[in-house]
Design a binder for these strands. Structure first.
Lengths: 336, 336
DNA sequence: TTGAAAGCGGTACCAG
DNA sequence: CTGGTACCGCTTTCAA
């Protein structure tokens, strides 16, 4: 079913069909009506490849690291909503933290000639930035970007967030903590882990043990197991994000450790699930709404705000998974 | 950057560039090398719109009802993996259970001339099937499809799953239960709720109260609140899926009810999270791997298996969120 | 207000 | 093995 067939059916020229479909310039109401009727009758659906070729596509790309983590889904949904009202459609890609897949996804987006691109990823491939600058596609990175002529970057101030978290734990008496991070954080970009190390470093009597796993429930559980094996004396487990914290929680429960009575646990991101776990997770809120808003502004708004960096300041959220340190002896008096 | 420019740079014709890029027929190694070099130097990225127009696109569409529910994400990932090895890329869409958005998404896919389509949705718009048949796009529906000349349908046997679940609860002594369903199930398609009603109907002394909410954690929590308000005497809460069950769990905890001691809770789908909640959820396993496999077979495999229905039989998974009914009196003796 | 026609950037067939 | 060329289906001037 092509535009031409519709045109013939409506006794007009293809150009007129195009005009009606795009609401561009004036078309006599008679012709318009005939076209609309023809479109319905023939169930005509314009070929978007052709449209994209001739016009220029009204779609933007969104690339995330891990769709299994609700944090990314939240951002995706925020962009989706913005795209909807701006009349864009979204092309989504998931990299699974693989730099190769990131590069492949970016290429795919470039190939589709997207009008804009948002990459909410932790991994990065050097050279990608250059490629993006080459194609002059308005882009918003999160964390891993370097502002460029047409590239904006959203930087989450993990450092600040971790400082708040560590200060809080320190005030509760914790002096030996474990960190459950991403495997991805073993690479060059590992902001969260570095933030923890730096924050811990500012307390002379605070020490941290580190383990890493995948960004999944299982990964969190396994990393918790590792960090506990390395040092059974830790009184708190700091997790790189909430999803992994949920996994850690499970590991602790299986070992008969009560949270926060015997050991404290913290998440990061403050996804919805953090409120629904038992106990609800103390976490650090990163506003997905704000990230989504920034992305939408830049991708769908007037092309004015170029080359800049946005900083997001995370907020500590206290819930029930953290508590004061108790002496080890007390632990054995528990009823359950 | 166009093919022609690359051709000029490599001192060959555009046709040869195309041949090199698609590995079609033979090209002298000299020319090939020059083309590859030119592509690299110019950072050439073929315009996929043009390619899709001239050739035919190698992409398939995947439409799901709710990306916030890991159930759908699991299926998406299964298809993503299959698409990767088959050399297809995926165009994803999320409907949020809106029939209008489903129609819009399908149109979008048709417009992109996808090679195949998988719609894992609970909502449906009559006429959509006809439209799909019109365009002869190989399609796989889940639940809501009607097998047609090029449409396959995967039917999850909710009835069987709910029967097992109800039989199990009945055997534990439950006689008054609540059902927490989707709002979406209030529409014409509400398999899970019907399955519950039918299963309950086969026991003369079993009664069920019903409430519905969104397919979210909050929705589950709210629906649980409603169903408990309607009948505080229920001894079990059957949830339409695990995500909602997690929400229900939270509501019960807030009320000081212990699961399963005071009240039992069941989920459905058996998503990963069901194993990580406290207590882990008794659920009914629906294999996303199997659904993903069927989709991949049909969309990426040889186009042989047409117009058929696949039935998935769910399996009961017992965990700790269900237990025998205790007399109401006992409830007050709880320590905590 | 409408139609004709020139691209948009590839693919694929055909001749050389 | 390679270049020329006719489309693919739509948008967008440019005239009429």
């Amino acid at each position: 079913m092509t535009q031409e067939q519709v045109a013939r059916h409506a006794r007009v020229s293809p150009a007129t069909v195009s005009r009606v479909l795009n609401n561009t310039c004036a078309v006599s109401s008679g012709a318009r009506a005939r076209v609309i009727k023809a479109v319905e009758e023939l169930r005509y659906s314009p070929n978007l490849h052709a449209r994209g070729l001739a016009g220029g596509s009204r779609s933007v790309g969104v690339i995330v690291s891990n769709f299994e983590n609700p944090f990314f889904v939240d951002i995706y949904k925020a962009v989706e909503a913005g795209a909807g009202i701006a009349g864009f459609d979204i092309i989504m890609a998931n990299t699974g933290y693989s730099p190769e897949r990131l590069t492949a996804s970016v290429r795919l987006m470039i190939g589709r000639r997207v009008a804009g691109l948002a990459a909410i990823v932790s991994e990065m491939d050097p050279g990608l930035i250059a490629e993006l600058n080459e194609y002059r596609i308005p882009t918003v990175f999160c964390d891993v970007g370097t502002p460029g002529s047409n590239i904006a970057n959203i930087r989450v101030n993990y450092r600040r967030g971790m400082e708040k978290l560590i200060a809080y734990l320190y005030s509760l008496g914790h002096r030996r903590v474990g960190f459950v991070g991403h495997h991805a954080t073993l690479g060059p970009i590992n902001e969260r882990q570095r933030a923890v190390l730096d924050a811990v470093g500012s307390y002379s009597d605070l020490r941290v043990d580190i383990a890493a796993g995948d960004d999944t429930l299982e990964g969190g559980r396994r990393a918790a197991r590792v960090v506990l094996a390395a040092n059974p004396a830790i009184t708190a487990v700091i997790c790189a994000n909430d999803l992994m914290a949920l996994g850690a929680l499970r590991e602790l429960r299986d070992r008969g450790l009560r949270v926060p009575h015997d050991i404290s646990v913290t998440g990061f991101d403050n996804i919805k699930l953090a409120q629904f776990s038992d106990p609800p997770l103390t976490s650090v809120h990163i506003s997905r709404e704000e990230i989504g808003r920034i992305i939408c502004d830049r991708l769908f708004g007037p092309a004015t705000l170029l080359e800049r960096e946005f900083v997001i300041d995370p907020e500590l959220v206290l819930r029930d998974s953290t508590g004061p340190v108790r002496s080890r002896g007390v632990k054995n008096t528990r009823v359950h």
